[in-house]
């Protein structure tokens, strides 16, 4: 079988591979090369060594600011999303009436695309701020908390569903044994529930982390970086470097390479923790 199948490579693999090369592999390799060049279109690239990378870390560039803003945003939203999602999941696994309805409602915002989400929340947040006579572009703080709010609205339902699945896997006997031993609710949470949903916590933690870290659409629609470029996160900063002014494409590409390395590091850490967990269990 293997031998016959092997001859079918052109039918089974070639179409996917062709699309993969055009959409991903070739652009990826070219992207790495171009980050060491100065170019406006791909064909007029001139090798400039590490110039682009040095440029990123000079005082006038927004990259480090965007990095710091992204890290702050990622930390805050990862914590808030997971705490809220976990609490809702706890409530929704108590066998209350209407559980199914609540689950459906809480999950729904997750299906709406980032651009649409951004404009929905722009309306709401500007509505509140208009009382103060300003809008979301007035201060980077407003943009920051606006993004946190939006992200919570979008991701809480999603994470909640994963937590619910984890909570439902815990056997009833654990809880019965605990209540016979006279454990108080907080003790049950700490010594039974939390350790047993640890796999779900790892998954949700990293999902929120990477989602927030790579966020683009929501950021673009809600603030577009305003005021100035103060609320641009990394992905938006890269976009603005590429398309904001002619001549800085090389710098944009170098930023993209650094962004890729950071995301790859996060993925590596995630893999390490997921593997470790598998060994433990």
């Amino acid at each position: 079988m293997q031998k016959t199948l092997k001859r079918y490579f052109p039918i089974f693999v070639a179409p996917t591979l062709l699309a993969f090369l055009i959409a991903f592999a070739i652009p990826f390799i070219m992207g790495i090369y171009l980050s060491f060049t100065k170019f406006t279109t791909v064909t007029n690239a001139q090798f400039v060594g590490l110039y682009n990378y040095k440029q990123i870390f000079t005082a006038g560039d927004h990259f480090l600011h965007a990095l710091w803003f992204t890290v702050k945003f990622t930390v805050v939203s990862t914590i808030t999303v997971n705490v809220i999602a976990f609490c809702l999941a706890l409530l929704l696994t108590k066998g209350l009436r209407g559980t199914h309805f609540f689950r459906t409602v809480f999950f729904m915002p997750n299906l709406i695309g980032g651009i649409v989400l951004g404009y929905i929340w722009q309306l709401i947040i500007n509505g509140f701020l208009s009382g103060l006579g300003v809008d979301i572009t007035y201060s980077a703080n407003y943009g920051f908390w606006g993004l946190v709010l939006l992200t919570n609205w979008q991701l809480v339902g999603y994470m909640m569903i994963i937590y619910i699945a984890g909570l439902q896997n815990i056997s009833k006997e654990m809880y019965e044994a605990a209540s016979i031993d006279g454990a108080r609710p907080m003790q049950v949470l700490r010594h039974i529930t939390l350790p047993l949903v640890m796999p779900s916590i790892t998954i949700c933690f990293f999902l929120t982390l990477t989602n927030s870290f790579k966020m683009f659409d929501q950021n673009y629609a809600l603030t577009a970086g305003a005021p100035g470029r103060e609320t641009s996160m990394l992905a938006l900063d890269i976009f603005q470097t590429f398309y904001g002014s002619v001549g800085s494409e090389g710098i944009g590409q170098a930023k993209a390479v650094i962004f890729f390395i950071l995301v790859a590091l996060l993925a590596g850490i995630q893999l390490y923790f997921t593997r470790k967990r598998e060994v433990d269990v």
């Binding site: 652009p27 992207g31 683009f216 890729f260 995301v263 790859a264």
Partner: peptide, 24 residues
Amino acid sequence: LYYGFIFSMIVPFQMVMFTMSKIA
């Protein structure tokens, strides 16, 4: 090839967006 496909999952779109749109 299999690892190549998996690798592409961790690469953010910004990394390839410029070159990809030029090739397209």
